[in-house]
Design a protein around this nucleic acid. Sequence first.
DNA 1: CTCTAACCGAGACGGTACGTCAAGTCTTCTA
DNA 2: TAGAAGACTTGACGTACCGTCTCGGTTAGAG
Lengths: 196, 196, 196, 196
Amino acid sequence: MTDHRAARTDNRTHTIMQATLDLAREAGYAKLSIEAVASRAGVGKHTVYRRWPSRGLLFLDAVLSLNTAGLDHPDTGDIVADLREVMTRAAALLGQPPWGPLYQDLIGEAQHDPEVAAALNRRFIEPQTANTLARLEAAKDQGQLAPDFDLDLAFEILSGPLYYRLLITQQPLTHAYIDRVLQAVFAGMSPRPQTR
Amino acid sequence: MTDHRAARTDNRTHTIMQATLDLAREAGYAKLSIEAVASRAGVGKHTVYRRWPSRGLLFLDAVLSLNTAGLDHPDTGDIVADLREVMTRAAALLGQPPWGPLYQDLIGEAQHDPEVAAALNRRFIEPQTANTLARLEAAKDQGQLAPDFDLDLAFEILSGPLYYRLLITQQPLTHAYIDRVLQAVFAGMSPRPQTR
Amino acid sequence: MTDHRAARTDNRTHTIMQATLDLAREAGYAKLSIEAVASRAGVGKHTVYRRWPSRGLLFLDAVLSLNTAGLDHPDTGDIVADLREVMTRAAALLGQPPWGPLYQDLIGEAQHDPEVAAALNRRFIEPQTANTLARLEAAKDQGQLAPDFDLDLAFEILSGPLYYRLLITQQPLTHAYIDRVLQAVFAGMSPRPQTR
Amino acid sequence: MTDHRAARTDNRTHTIMQATLDLAREAGYAKLSIEAVASRAGVGKHTVYRRWPSRGLLFLDAVLSLNTAGLDHPDTGDIVADLREVMTRAAALLGQPPWGPLYQDLIGEAQHDPEVAAALNRRFIEPQTANTLARLEAAKDQGQLAPDFDLDLAFEILSGPLYYRLLITQQPLTHAYIDRVLQAVFAGMSPRPQTR
DNA sequence: CTCTAACCGAGACGGTACGTCAAGTCTTCTA
DNA sequence: TAGAAGACTTGACGTACCGTCTCGGTTAGAG
């Protein structure tokens, strides 16, 4: 039956992705070779190549398979609290070991493999962006955001600093840092007119 | 004399960096091998290894050698205009061919080579950050910024979205985008009290 | 019915052998793979393996299937003319394209596959040897050969030089060459007493 | 000094050829892979490929390197005895283990690799042929051979049957067989006129 | 002006991994 | 139930670079 074959196939697929993650955690993505993955998974190289055309896409699949928890937005009615919650969860997931380095390497790979970049956007970034945008629109309707704020930018302005820390300065993504970003972004840089 | 030797040495160094850039532009960093660099530069592999311990650091040196123009901040008195100016220059330099892809690859390499990451920060990011911070402090003194704004974050909040576009969504960094970022960051997301 | 099944089976067998010959002629035996044969024949690999245990034996079957013309000895009463006739036919069949190279490859394969060697002898060499021996014995009875000649060797002495040319020096087997061999072998190397 | 480099190079060359022979004797030429040779010799694959363009030519070099003894013709004044001597030596060298199977495989390889065939002829067959021809011409001058015998064929007529046995029927090359060949070839197949 | 030490190009070397091919075995579905 | 289809492990192919290493040939400064 198709089920049996599919099950067998899925088994190999899963085994290979697991071996990929294991090796990536042990030695880093730079040392990850398809040869080693196949050997660790007890599988022929061809069986890997049959499923993934490149090391990068294999790694992408493996890393994204971890995101089972999801990063869906809560809606408690308080937009700042909700953003803080999801940013904290994202930081906890992507910004620290063991997944942080893997995610860093994944983005690194995307810099010279357009297929990885495209797949990463399509499968991870865009859904997350859409999710956030929906929550922000609800908040705007409730008057919790400036009515003229450029919402399409919001995700990038909130995420940008986190990615900057993750990828450029490679400093830790602490709760305090998230709070500071939220406060600064909500307040804006302009001097306020005297509210009194 | 020492001068002659140094001159000769510098010549080789420069030749190698030039070959590195040429090859990187022709085939991309992924295809850049020390073997090819040495061959292109007409130099023994040893002569490359004597100067750089890794492909990444060679590439870093080569890419940073291009930043001769500098990204110093102007001070026209208008902080928004000045920021727009420097962001535009940065986008023009780093966000489009031929240097954009190289810079992307450089950051990609930094994701799995801590030495590259450290050197990139020390030699490029930190000076630029300090530069911007100085200009922002002057602006705050002049009342052009909210007096309580978290200035240490400012660079990250302004740069973050640009890097996000460069590295994640890999969309172009247009003037319009820079304007939108500036406007959004200055305005902040909070609803304003009626300014009447 | 069994007949139908047998017919179908024979069809496959023939199809596979034909595909084998086609591929061998196109690309040479060295490039002949069971994978390619099966694919060319539109047949599963199993269907090939079910019939032949090795590439060599498949190739043997395929090549020998061409020998339909046969190399039976004529008997015109003139032993030299008859030998020349059969040697010429053999040279025409095995010593030139398209079958020459295939026959060479077949003997090449026999050098490291004892099963091929044994089957080649049993199915091709031995019958031909017996055939020649019978004709030679008739000639001896008729006084056309030296009565003490070592007839068991005759086939090897006549064929040996042809095979030597085919396999070692790889020069063409011309009519002239066959004539020279016949003349030399019949005359012998010893100096003759004056026939006066 | 050049000597040192050459010595080092020769060492590797020799080591590789030795490993080739060892493996060929252990498992046969069919199982001989460059990968295995390199590994056995404790050498990188490239070091093998740098010296030999193909498995066949490596094997040829390795096998021919054994022919140190040489097969030069003696000249005792008795041409039959001398031919018997050299044929016996050749049979002892090439017709029995351990070199016999290797020589068989070498000729097998020559059947589908023209470069091997050419090199085998140039480096082994032709010198041996010339050697024999010279000895035969001396014998003819001394009246030990028929003055009109086709000497250019002689080597082929004498060697042919031996090669036929080695390659086709794969029967052993005994002293008795050599004697029978010599006797038959010297006598010729024609009936002799009554010498009385 | 020679001597000498550093540097240089060239490239051999043992390795590791690449991505491909075919081997022979095995399983699944179809006719 | 035999057969096509093809997945599977294995192992070898020939290539590309890795980083280390020798080699002989400059070259420039010290003696």
